[in-house]
């Protein structure tokens, strides 16, 4: 075990990238859970992963191809509409199949697909930091506007249509924000770690928080705390980051047992 490595300047940039992702995914995860679309998050992350491996095949910048793949998946989701989990399950299986087939038929595919399973946070750099910085600013700017509309769309779903607003823009904006964030996340921390940050912190916060604002704060707090523990543990114990983060989040989720659901 090498605890001193945790504080090495070498890991500062990856630490900040992961921190930004923890905040963004936990925040967006609350709205994804409210929309009952958490399976879509896994579908989008898997699509981004397929894009990464395909990008590796054709020597494109992998982050760019991951973004394009996630946006295509988001567009497909918008086209099929709210058809429930069936469409998202197909998206997951399609992404997984494409990713592994592409990996089997390319020089670097195996390395890339392993990185997407285990997470390669320690190799992320300035491009991720710049992209995530823009995403954080965007989220801070639009969430106050979009939050009320997303909630209104769930509790009073016909109100937009009844007022002549056929396809509300906020749905599209939110889907794009989620798709782009998941593309960054899949390339930085791996598919399942990204999915775990979308799913687990809101799952815990929904059980305990007394209101919506505290749900958002609680979800981010859980994600950041688990991320910091996982970041330090993975370096100190020389373990792959993605599985360590998922394990820490799962341990944290045991907190749900502390309070019975009413």
């Amino acid at each position: 075990m090498n605890v001193a490595l945790v504080f090495d300047r070498l890991f500062l940039l990856p630490f900040l990238n992961g921190l930004a992702l923890a905040v963004l995914l936990a925040l967006l995860g609350c709205y994804i859970r409210l929309r009952e679309e958490w399976l879509a998050a896994l579908g989008l992350a898997q699509a981004a992963a397929a894009g990464v491996v395909l990008g590796g095949m054709f020597l494109e910048p992998v982050l760019l191809v991951a973004l394009v793949a996630a946006l295509l998946a988001a567009a497909t989701k918008a086209l099929v509409g709210r058809t429930g989990n069936d469409a998202y399950a197909v998206m997951i299986l399609f992404g997984w199949s494409v990713a592994l087939l592409a990996a089997a038929n390319s020089v670097h595919g195996d390395d890339l697909s392993r990185a997407l399973v285990q997470g390669q946070l320690y190799f992320t750099g300035v491009p991720h930091l710049e992209g995530l910085g823009v995403l954080l600013l965007l989220a801070v700017a639009i969430l106050p506007w979009i939050s009320r509309r997303l909630l209104l769309g769930r509790f009073f779903p016909d109100t937009f249509r009844a007022n002549g607003l056929g396809t509300p823009h906020h749905d599209l904006v939110f889907d794009l924000l989620v798709a782009v964030t998941l593309a960054f996340a899949a390339t930085a921390i791996g598919v399942f770690a990204a999915f775990a940050l979308v799913f687990v912190p809101p799952w815990i916060a929904f059980r305990f928080a007394p209101g919506w604002k505290k749900t958002l704060v609680g979800s981010v707090a859980v994600a950041v705390a688990c991320y910091m523990v996982a970041f330090a543990a993975a370096i100190a114990l020389d373990q792959p980051f993605g599985p360590v983060l998922v394990a820490v989040l799962l341990v944290a989720s045991l907190a749900r047992l502390l309070r019975r659901h009413h």
Partner: peptide, 20 residues
Amino acid sequence: VMVQPQRPFRLPEMPITGHE
């Protein structure tokens, strides 16, 4: 226009207060 739906949306865990 405001529309109150026939089947109100409420998840089994729904951390939103009446005020909100």
